[in-house]
């Protein structure tokens, strides 16, 4: 036990400050709805992540948001286990046809108001996989998308900034 405490104390706090995204960056993220979110969610959002067909690269970087460097919870952003608790759906991957109904149902199970963020190039435009007999391509081909965070996969910093822009407090 003592070793454990020693390690915790010697590690200290490694969490890094994150610059709030600038207006230009917000535009890049395709977010015109920021103010609504500020009003509705009072600066705190609950996220349900859905892998709709990703290669799992995007998931690795979403995971990194919870590591001590990014510690996304300090911004009031947390991941929840059920779509019924969620304000935001974070969807990755091209939507595989085998996941299409599951994604639609998850979307329906999320209470209004809700926002959908497409994470990664695949979710944004189909990426390397495109549209085929097995893939519906971009998330917006299946459910309405409110914001896009591009990258293959997007870095945790890009994810933090993208999400912050959804719930930025002034």
């Amino acid at each position: 036990m003592l070793r454990l405490f020693k390690k915790i104390l010697t590690t200290g706090i490694v969490t890094e400050p994150v610059k709030a995204p600038k207006d230009v960056e917000l535009e890049q993220l395709g977010i015109a709805i920021k103010r609504h979110i500020d009003r509705r969610y009072s600066g705190s959002i609950a996220i349900r992540q859905i892998d709709a067909g990703s290669c799992n690269g995007c998931e690795l970087e979403i995971h990194a948001l919870n590591n001590p460097y990014y510690d996304i919870e300090r911004f009031g952003i947390h991941f929840v286990a059920s779509p019924r608790h969620a304000d935001v759906l974070l969807v990755t991957g091209p939507v595989s046809r085998h996941m299409q109904t599951a994604l639609l149902r998850t979307y329906e199970a999320t209470p209004d108001p809700k926002w959908v963020v497409a994470v990664g190039d695949c979710a944004a435009c189909g990426g390397e996989f495109g549209v085929s007999y097995a893939s519906c391509g971009a998330v917006s081909n299946v459910i309405p998308v409110d914001a896009v965070i591009a990258g293959c996969p997007p870095t945790p910093l890009a994810l933090v900034q993208g999400l912050l822009s959804l719930c930025e407090r002034h």
Binding site: P94, H98, Y133, A134
Partner: peptide, 11 residues
């Protein structure tokens, strides 16, 4: 399994 079948072999 098979939910994330993306047709990799075909494409």
């Amino acid at each position: 399994l098979g939910y994330v079948h993306k047709g990799i072999e075909k494409i």
